[in-house]
Design a protein around this nucleic acid. Structure first.
Length: 424
DNA sequence: TCTGGGGTCCTAGGACCC
DNA sequence: TCTGGGGTCCTAGGACCC
């Protein structure tokens, strides 16, 4: 049987590249995009990396440096990024029958059907096409497994010579590549595992691949750890799942621009998060049977600390925003402690199942037809007229929940387009 | 003044069952 | 002196990803 071939396509500095798309004047300037509330950097161009600004660096710490170096700083504009991402993925889909969208800026493609000698030129064609049709620069790594494609992609980003495409299908090249890849750069090896592996003398990807004792690896690093090792040896263990997967948990949380000290404000924020999460729940035709509510103070501030948490289990699954707000408000009363300055709060919907399999209970009413119809109409109106057009009274009118500092936001280039599409 | 917002999977251990 | 043994389900918590 022919070995699998995977390509990993990764958009370069994705959020920054999206901003540049509409601002050609930023082409050679350092660009950075900030997290919500303009907290820290979540995307940086090479020019910004060269200035020493790290991923996750708090903005206020490097503000002076940025001003001195004429860095173009943006607040995040996720509506824009999602829209551009869709366009990239649609372009990629033309090149393979099997595409797995792995994140907003990455996708795996099955290229097994391409002859080995043509892989490099095919990958370059893909790259050129995305850049021509969407305008976003990408890097592509190609090899026998997802983990190896990641390694190849990494090299493609770093090497000048590669011009954004690296194909690793020859043993000799693979050996060199794996030797040059520090163990911590391997996909699936995080900080904790890096330390453990180093202590065992495993400092590079090659040393992990060639480590003799599989049982030790499995014992210390779980089944997934062993699969990573096998992937490095070119075995296809993380197979492609190109089917649309429903979320098993849905979260919504935010850091507040101003802390919350009042329970009614907290209730309002939580009601908004429940509304948001329930919309996503209905979008994938699911119900949930557990709601978690949490809030925490700022760990960076020298004030009394608290992590408040409450959960509600329902006997029957629901997708009814109003019902979840009802139980959610009781949960807030249970967890909220006066005297603390809560800086962040959120909700998580758990025990998610398909609405057709949703458990009915003898003791608790399930969602009745009227509630379903109401929710459907609400979703329809909000999709057409914009989020929050129709909502529960509990959400309030002043928007405590989603108020953020966004001092550097780019204009709404494409949001209208995106909202139109959602209606269909 | 100032530090994001999502997700996934795995394992260990307890509850419960026969 | 010694506590059955195995299976399943659930949950909490850790680790990792972008």
């Amino acid at each position: 049987m022919k070995r699998k071939i995977y390509a990993l396509v990764d958009c370069n500095s994705f959020y920054c590249s999206c901003e540049r798309l509409f601002r050609p004047d930023l082409k050679n300037r350092p660009v950075g995009v900030l997290s919500n509330n303009d907290g820290c950097f979540i995307s940086r161009t090479n020019e910004l990396k060269a200035l020493g600004v790290k991923m996750g660096a708090p903005y206020f710490q490097v503000k002076d440096l940025c001003e001195k170096n004429n860095v173009a700083v943006f607040s995040s504009n996720f509506a824009l990024y999602t829209n551009i991402s869709d366009r990239v993925m649609n372009t990629l889909a033309k090149f393979t029958p099997h595409l797995e969208v792995y994140s907003v800026d990455e996708a795996f493609m099955d290229l097994t059907f391409i002859a080995s000698k043509d892989l490099d030129s095919y990958a370059r064609e893909i790259k050129a096409c995305v850049e021509r049709e969407v305008g976003i620069p990408v890097s592509i790594g190609v090899s026998f497994s997802k983990t190896l494609a990641k390694v190849a992609n990494h090299l493609g980003k770093k090497s000048e010579k590669a011009k954004g495409v690296v194909v690793l299908t020859e043993d000799k090249l693979l050996d060199i590549a794996l030797e040059r890849t520090p163990i911590g750069d391997v996909w699936g090896i995080g900080r904790a595992r890096t330390e453990q592996l180093k202590a065992m003398g495993i400092t590079s990807a090659k040393k992990l691949r060639d480590f003799k004792n599989d049982r030790v690896i499995q014992k210390q690093f779980t089944k997934v750890g062993l699969m990573t090792k096998e992937e490095l040896a070119g075995e296809d263990r993380f197979t492609l799942d190109f089917l649309y997967q429903k979320k098993k948990e849905i979260m919504c949380s935010r850091t507040f621009a101003d802390s919350i000290v009042d329970m009614d404000d907290m209730k309002q924020a939580i009601a908004n998060y429940i509304t948001d999460a329930c919309e996503k729940l209905r979008e994938q035709n699911s119900t949930c049977a557990k709601l978690e509510v949490f809030a925490r103070t700022s760990p960076y501030k020298n004030t009394p600390q608290d992590y408040a948490f409450a959960e509600v289990k329902l006997l029957s699954g629901t997708q009814d925003t109003l019902r979840l707000i009802q139980v959610g408000m009781k949960a807030v009363e249970k967890m909220f402690k006066p005297g603390f300055e809560y800086k962040k709060a959120g909700v998580r919907l758990c025990h998610i199942v398909d609405e057709r399999e949703s458990q009915l209970s003898l003791f608790e009413p399930g969602d009745d037809t009227r509630s379903s119809q109401l929710m459907r109409v609400v979703d329809l109106i909000n999709r057409r007229e914009g989020d929050g057009t129709v909502k529960s009274m509990a959400c309030g009118v002043t928007n405590i929940a989603f108020r953020m500092n966004r001092n550097f936001k780019s204009p709404r280039y494409v949001t209208g387009y995106s909202e139109l599409r959602k209606v269909n």
